[in-house]
Computed example of a mutant assay.
Amino acid sequence: MKTALLIIDVQNGMFTVNPPVCKGNALLKRIKRALGFAKNKNIPIIYVQHSGPKDSPLEKGTMGWNFHEDISPADGDIIVHKDTPDSFYRTNLQQKLRELNIDHLVLTGIQTEACIDTTCRRGFSLDFKITILTDAHSTFDKKEISAAQIISHHNEVLRWFADTITTDDFINE
């Protein structure tokens, strides 16, 4: 199988809102480790960048829209732009994956219950093998449920569509 690492919506605006994404520093460290591993193994890296509406934390062209400096794309990395939770919908992601003969996607990023969940399920439906790094995606606390509970719940539910492993397991495979 030919694998690609997807880094979804790890943009400045997710870290500057109040409160910021849950355990943001730990998230960045894990994604950075997965990114380093992917580069060492010549695994293609695809950044997905969300464009939010005007005056949102991810408004296109603002500092919040830019990728977080700790994991910014390098020359040769692919950037896919989206404006919905689905990284495939009205984007060139599937075309890029087919051009590279990718059939296995490793998902990291933000937001667990939106973009990670939707991209996982859609990728599965498009016949990609999906792996989610269980400790390399995050979200925000909600009024009635914590970010940790959302992440735990999705790691459990998405096992129907993906292999769920830690960053360490991915790096040590």
Rank of each mutant, 00 (worst) to 15 (best):
T3R: 12
A4Q: 02
L5G: 01
L5Q: 05
L6I: 02
D9F: 03
D9P: 01
N12I: 07
M14R: 15
T16Q: 15
N18F: 10
N18I: 08
P20Y: 03
V21K: 03
K23Q: 15
K23A: 15
N25W: 12
A26G: 11
A26P: 06
R30E: 15
I31T: 04
R33A: 14
A34G: 07
A34I: 06
L35Q: 10
L35C: 06
G36L: 12
F37L: 04
F37K: 01
A38C: 09
A38S: 08
K39G: 08
N42Y: 08
I43G: 02
P44I: 04
P44S: 07
Y47T: 06
V48Q: 02
V48C: 05
V48T: 04
H50E: 08
S51K: 13
K54E: 14
K54C: 07
K54G: 09
D55G: 07
P57E: 06
L58I: 13
L58R: 02
T62A: 06
G64R: 08
N66Y: 13
N66I: 11
H68K: 03
D70T: 10
D70G: 08
I71F: 03
S72E: 15
S72C: 12
P73M: 06
D75Y: 12
I78G: 02
T91H: 01
T91K: 02
N92G: 08
L93T: 00
Q94K: 14
Q95E: 15
L97I: 01
L97D: 00
E99P: 01
D103K: 08
D103H: 05
L105A: 08
V106N: 01
V106C: 02
L107M: 11
I110E: 03
T112I: 09
C115H: 03
C115A: 14
D117M: 14
T118R: 12
T119Q: 06
T119I: 04
T119H: 01
C120I: 04
R122P: 03
F124K: 11
L126Y: 07
D127Q: 12
D127L: 09
I130T: 00
I130A: 00
T131N: 03
L133W: 09
D135Y: 05
F140C: 10
F140I: 10
E144K: 13
E144C: 10
S146G: 10
A148Y: 10
Q149R: 09
I151M: 04
I151F: 06
S152R: 11
H153S: 14
H153F: 11
E156T: 13
E156I: 10
V157P: 04
T164Q: 14
I165Y: 13
T166L: 05
T167G: 04
D169R: 14
I171E: 08
E173H: 13
